[in-house]
């Protein structure tokens, strides 16, 4: 097997494992207050997604076609607007309409 490629997948695997173990362990042991734990879960998740994109999907600014990169960024923006907007709207409605 090609050495350079193999290293990429192994690094990605190790990083992903670490970024999974931390949040799982925190929940299993309740070591930190819930607020703090949730924050760490969120950050670990975002970091792990980036690890997957970089080490498994080989996304980078050099070889990835720019249309694909733009599509990913646009998707992220759209998701932020749709999910963020939905959450704001439904939370607001919940406060006023008890639903």
């Amino acid at each position: 097997m090609e050495q350079h490629g193999l290293r990429t997948y192994l690094i990605g695997f190790v990083l992903a494992v670490v970024l999974s173990v931390i949040p799982f362990w925190l929940v299993a042991t309740h070591a930190l207050p819930p607020r703090r734990t949730l924050l760490i879960i969120g950050i670990a998740a975002l970091l792990q997604v980036m690890v997957h994109l970089r080490f498994f999907l080989h996304l980078n600014f050099r070889t990835t076609p720019k249309e694909n990169m733009l599509a990913l960024m646009f998707t992220t923006l759209m998701i932020f607007i749709m999910v963020g907007g939905s959450y704001w709207i439904m939370f607001d409605l919940h406060q006023r309409m008890m639903t």
């Binding site: 490629g5 193999l6 997948y9 992903a16």
Partner: peptide, 17 residues
């Protein structure tokens, strides 16, 4: 799932060579 992602990576490497 995580291990399977890695093993798929190994499959891709084999395919490319």
């Amino acid at each position: 799932l995580l291990v399977s992602s890695t093993t798929f990576g190994f499959a891709s490497l084999s395919a490319r060579t």
